[in-house]
Every structure is written in structure tokens, then in C-alpha cells.
Design a binder for these strands. Structure first.
Lengths: 212, 212, 212, 212
DNA sequence: GATGAATGAGCATTCATTCAT
DNA sequence: GATGAATGAATGCTCATTCAT
């Protein structure tokens, strides 16, 4: 496991890049359909229409493919978030209320739009982040980015915000928004999406905005 | 899988009850130490100092032990919560502010005290609830209980509370508190426990209490 | 297997006889439903509503129960056959043709009426007689009886019969009749019962009777 | 059982074909020596000098090897029978008696020559055809072929034959011949081969030929 | 480089049989 | 005598990984 030889090939020719892409595509499909634990390397290779041996020239094991998949997903998300953030901050803000709303919308919509990820695959990612140190690390890196972004966002509007511990606030608000999103995606409690979003907005506004 | 014979032995003699307890104790230890997936039935039996066959007379497979373990944990938690709730509501409340504080403390402390569960085992439970339908069901049942309890709590103090969608509020607040607890337990972001609790309290008070 | 201790208890008290009967009844049901190989001792005991240990005080293993069951079945059959035979031979025969018909009917009806045994259990018995020496021996003993009976029957009417090798004839006719019965019971070829019986009669008459 | 993954490898390289043949050879030997039920997959693999896993890449379980073995045996038999049949019918027949004799010999000799199969293996096949639906199906397919062939044979000589229900006749004659063969092979009654064959011929001739 | 056959340790599960109560 | 819990060897099957072609 830990002492796996680090000899996974980095493809430089087109054929190699193609094979790697085929593996990742096949693995994503299988992890989504059957879950990470019930998928095995031979199966991924078969679905990717390559030989078992070829799989092992690109990845040392199943976990590496999974890691690569979630890194790509997170990279995608981060790019979208950054884009979103820049768009929002380009607008010249005029009043407090609008700012706060922006913030709330930022949180909610970003999270919602981010996780376009297939719900089954998302469950696999969340579970693996709990079970495996390496996957956990990848997820934490991503979360750190989001927190930093939110903290810097708060800084931009700090004069309109009633709280001061931006970091703790960012952690709680992001986690709360994320959980709201899971509730909606996994639909575990049966409370409707609209009601959750409305209350989430209310929480954010009341928490961040001073008495008007 | 689905067609597992429903022939798990129900111990009638003292010896049998002892064996079952030994299995659950050993399994809990191993799931905590090595995680669910890296633990196997033979190992549990060995640790419990019983034969492999004995394991399979009490449980049809590893998952059933896991299910029994978390059901016990949740039963424990529910009992504690109920106790806590009854103690709090016996006090004769005098003013709004105190009520809200009670609510906030209720949320935070309950969650904190609840999850005395070993952090590693907790991760296993959370992960399995994402990966396995049956474990998910057990967890959802528990969450439903907690939501209902919080909703009924809000009803008791409804005249002091500014919001009206108690159900959506309960879901969000519980999830947010739970996530805060996970942040503290798993210490992923490095923000200190006290700061998180303080902000959490602030969120709850601002969200629930009207302008004073 | 072979060196199993011969310590199966012979029940002398009523309770013991009852238990043994319960075991045989339960085993018969299970062998019929699930087949011999998929039935196990614990299951028989459970169905008989006795303890596993009790099973082993009456029988040394599963095969012994099976042997006892088929011995009883064969004893039953033999008694019926003998009865049938005696009834037929009491009639004072008057002409050749009638005798031959009697013989044909004897063969056909006896076989048909004999094997009232459940078709699934019959398959198990036939298979076990092929797979296991001891069961084979029990079956052969039974077949020997039937052959002897048929041979003695032929002797009684020898003046009307065109053949002389009674033993070989008995073997072939019995086997042929038995197979006809299996065809009817297991319905493998789809040829109707009546057609098979008619042709069987024809075979017997032509074979045994001289030109009239 | 029923939901066995249909992933038995079809060997493409020479090495693979060799392995599959080695498995079938080893399995045939073991089924013959020890019987189907007392043989297990690991043992077959060991005898074939391959790894357990290799066994399972070519067959999903023990039964599949058995099925393949008997299918090959039956294919062989069918080819021989067809050949035999064609040779016989090429001769220009001249009289009734000779035809009937041909038929009798066809039945007897074909059955005898067919079952060159090892007697122990034959017992296993017969038993499994009684115990297992899939094996039963394979055997029935083979029997159907033989019946059809015999019926068409009777048609060719229908003017010399006294009976009209060819299908029922074919079933009974084949079954009777088969049982005779088993008597000879398994030698259960002690009646000599020659006597049985002579009576069998007599049965067939009397049954099929009209009074001359 | 790619292939896919082979490996074999590893794991889940069963069940005939024993034996303490 | 009866009980039923305990045993543990046996077996079916999987799959990550290697390596000859």
C-alpha cells in the first residue's frame, strides 16, 4: 500500500494519453454505478477496453485512479467558484443589504451549482474522504481553498459585516451550506429544497448583517 | 446478499449471550482500530476468543455486527438526549434571552456530549451510512428522532422564536451543529473548538431570536 | 465415514421412538424439498423440533437416516407386491391369453402403483443408489426380490411362455417397466402415459406369448 | 447460483486453450476416481497443475466443468451414432428379417459401443442428471436426438414393422437398451452379458416384426 | 509498449460433530 | 436423556498484481 513503487507511467504520446483518459472515464462510470469497493482493477480495464497490465502501467492501484478522479472534480469546482467570485466582485456594490444578499447567494448558489457531480459518486467521494488518509488530504486541500476564498470575500465587505471571526464563520457557513446541499441531493429528510434554501439564506443574513 | 438466510441464532443460554457480547466488543475494537473494510469475520472471532463458526451463528455477516453496534450507539445517544431534554424543560424559564440560550446550548452541548463515540469509529459509521443502504436507513431513523425532538422543543418556545418553518430550521441547525462537531473531532481545518462553538451559538441566537 | 462408531441408540421408550419418528419424518420432507445433498443434520433436527445432539443419538449421520427412509419405502413396496402377487395367483387361470395379460398387467400396474413415492424423493433415491455403495446395496436387495418374484411367477405359468431364460427376461422386463414409469413420472420426453403403457403391454405380450 | 456472473474467460492465446484442456482432463479424472461431490475446485486445479484462480477464469464453478465434460461426451456419442446409422443404411436391404435384425443390432450395438465411457463416470453423469436441472437438460437434449434418429430409422423400414406408434416404441426400446447396458456395466444382478443381449434381441424382434 | 493469462494469498461461509450443562 | 452452543477444518470464490509473450 504505502510502499507502492512509484512507477506509474506519465503518458507523453497521444496513445498513452488516450489510454489514461479511457481508464479514468471507465473508472468514473464504475465507481458511480457499483461504488468504489465493489469495483476492481480488472473490471476497469475491461470497461476501458485495455488490458489489465496496461491499467497498471498508468496507475499503481485502484486508489490512485480514484484520487485522480476527485482531483479533477475539485479542480473543476475551484475554477467555477473562482470565476463566479470574480464576476460577483466586479459589480460595484451600492448598499449593505445587497452585499449580504450577494454573500448568501454566493454561498448557496455556488454550492448548488458546484455539486453537479453525480449523487452516487459524491457519496463515494465523501465516504472515501472519511476512510482514507490520502483522499482525506485531497478533500481538505479543496476545503481550505473554499474557506480562504470565503474569508477573503468577507474581508472585502468587512465594514458591512457584524461578526469578526471570519475563519470560524467561513468554516461553519460552508459546512452548513454543504450539508444543506447533501440534504437536497440525498433527500434524506424529505424537507423540500426551497424551504431549506430559504432558511439557509435567513441564517446567513441574520448571522452576517447587523440590525438594520 | 439480499437472500441471506435469516438464521442468526438468538442466544438462550447464558453462554450464548456472553458469546454474542464478546463478538460485539471485539468487533467494535477492530472496527475502531483498523476500520470496517480492513476487518474480517475471522479476525473478529479470534479477538473475541471464539471459533469462526460461532461468529456466524450469531451474525450472518460482518455488516450485521456493524449494524448492531451502531444501533446500540444510537440507542444510547437517544436515551441521553431525551434525558437532557427533560432536565432542561423542567427548569422554569423566565425570559426570552435565556430560552434562546437554552436552545443554543441544547443544540451544541447535546451534539458534543452525544458524540463521545470514538472519533475513528464515528468516521466508519458516517462512511458506511454513505456507502450502504441498510446502515443509511439506521442513521436516518436516528436523525429523524433528533429532528422531531428539536421541532417539539421549538414548539414549546414558539412565542420567543422569530422563524416559522421549524422543520427546515431543525434540519439545518442539527446538520450545522453536527458538522461543527465533526470539525472539532476530526480537526481538519485547524480552527479551535472554542471559536467554532462561539460562532455556532451566535448563528443560533441570531437566527432564532427576534431583535431584542 | 466408514469407521463411524456404531453407537446409534435403539430407542426403547416411547419418547425415544417418537423422536426417531420425528427425525425420519422431518428428513423425508427435507430430502424431498431440497434434495439429499443440500439438507444438513442441524436442519433436520430443527424441523423435527429436537436438539442437534439428539439427532446424533439416534443416527450416526445423515446417510443413515436416508438409508432408513429408503428401507422403509422398499419394505412397503415389497409388501404391496407380495400381496398383489398372491391375489393374482389365487384366481384359477383358464387360458393362455389371459395369463399373459395378467403378467403384463402385473408388471405394469405393480410398477405404477408401487412408485407412489414422491417424484422428487424418487430422484434422490435413484441418484444416491448410483453414488453411494451402501444405498446401492439396499436398492439391489430390493431389485433382487422383485426379480425373484417375477421369475417364480413365470415358473408358475411356464407352459404358456415362449421363452426360457426367465432370469434375464425378468431383469429386462422389470428395468424396462421401471424406466417407463420414470418417463411417466419425470415426463422428460413428452410422450403420453397411455401410449407408453400400451406399447409396454405389447412388448410384454409379444415377447412372452407364443404365436397363437 | 442463478446469478453467476457470465464471465468465464474464453481463451484466446494458446496458453489459455492449453490450461482449459488441462482443467477438463484433470476434472474428468477426479470425477471418475472420487465422484463429483467429493471432488473440489482446488483439487482439480492442483491436479491440472494450475492455480485455483486460473480454474475460476475458465469456469464459474465445478458444475460448469462437469457440464462441459458431459457435453463433449455426448457430442462424441452423437457423432458416432450418426456415422453408424449412415453406414447401416447404405447397405441395400433385401428382406424383412434382415431389416429387423439390423434394427435390433443397431439398438444394442450402438448403445454398447456408445457407452465406452468409464463406468464410474457414467454413474456420476446419470446421478447428476437426476439431481441437477441443468445437467438433466443436457441429457434430455441428447436423448431427444437418439429418439428422433430411431424414429426416422423406423420410418425407413416402416413396411416391415408391425407397430405404428414409433415415438413411444423408440422411447421404450432405447430406455430398455440403455438399462440393459447399465446392467452389464454395473453388473448388479449377476446375469451374464450374453444372456441379456440375446433376450434384448428377442424382445426387439418379436415386438417389431410381424408373424413370419 | 501492450497484452491477457496466471498467480495464490486471502476471505466468507458452511456443517458434521462434540460436549458441557 | 436431552439440549444447543461451540468447534474449526473444509471449501468456494475473488482480485490485486506479475510477467512471459
Amino acid at each position: 500500500m504505502a510502499n507502492s513503487k512509484n512507477n506509474a507511467r506519465v503518458p507523453k504520446q497521444n496513445r498513452g494519453i488516450e489510454s489514461k483518459e479511457k481508464i479514468i472515464k471507465a473508472a468514473t462510470a464504475l465507481f458511480t454505478e457499483k461504488g468504489y469497493h465493489k469495483t476492481n482493477a480488472m473490471e476497469i480495464a475491461a470497461r476501458a477496453e485495455i488490458a489489465t497490465g496496461t491499467f497498471y502501467s498508468y496507475f499503481n492501484n485502484k486508489k490512485e485512479v480514484f484520487a485522480e478522479i476527485i482531483e479533477r472534480i475539485f479542480r473543476n469546482i475551484s475554477e467555477n467558484v473562482l470565476l463566479n467570485f470574480e464576476l460577483k466582485t466586479q459589480d460595484t456594490p451600492t448598499n449593505t443589504y445587497k452585499e449580504a444578499h450577494l454573500l448568501a447567494h454566493f454561498l448557496i448558489n455556488r454550492i448548488l451549482s458546484e455539486y453537479k457531480v453525480n449523487s452516487k459518486l459524491l457519496k463515494q467521494i465523501l465516504a472515501m474522504a472519511l476512510l482514507d488518509k490520502e483522499i482525506e488530504k485531497i478533500r481538505h486541500k479543496e476545503e481550505k481553498k473554499q474557506i480562504d476564498l470565503l474569508v477573503s470575500f468577507m474581508h472585502t465587505y468587512k465594514e458591512y459585516i457584524r461578526i469578526s471571526d471570519f475563519e470560524a464563520a467561513a468554516v461553519l457557513l460552508l459546512k452548513c451550506a454543504e450539508e444543506m446541499m447533501h440534504q437536497i441531493k440525498f433527500n434524506s429528510t424529505g424537507v423540500e429544497k426551497e424551504r431549506l434554501i430559504q432558511q439557509m439564506e435567513d441564517i446567513v443574513l441574520r448571522y452576517l448583517l447587523p440590525e438594520s
